[in-house]
């Protein structure tokens, strides 16, 4: 089993700043556990057989 992903507040602030958001520690700390869980779950998608699939968003029906 993989170790749970950890993301520090400084890392979150840098990522938010890259998107143009100046969020404070107090604003980020409440969502940090949820962000970690989500990133951890997304990391597990890497084990699925997705390499031959194109990203899809809709039915291609004329």
């Amino acid at each position: 089993m993989l170790a749970p992903m950890e993301i520090g507040l400084e890392g979150m602030k840098r990522m938010a700043a890259a998107g143009g958001f100046a969020w404070t520690d107090a604003e980020l700390e409440p969502i940090r556990p949820a962000v970690e869980r989500l990133l951890d779950a997304l990391d597990r998608l890497e084990s699925l057989p997705l390499e031959d699939l194109e990203p899809t968003t809709q039915y291609r029906v004329l």
Binding site: L42, L45, E46, L48, P49, L50, L53, E54, P55, T56, T57
Partner: peptide, 9 residues
């Protein structure tokens, strides 16, 4: 995009 790939599956 990985999440969009899984959509096809």
């Amino acid at each position: 995009l990985r999440a969009q790939q899984l959509r096809a599956l």
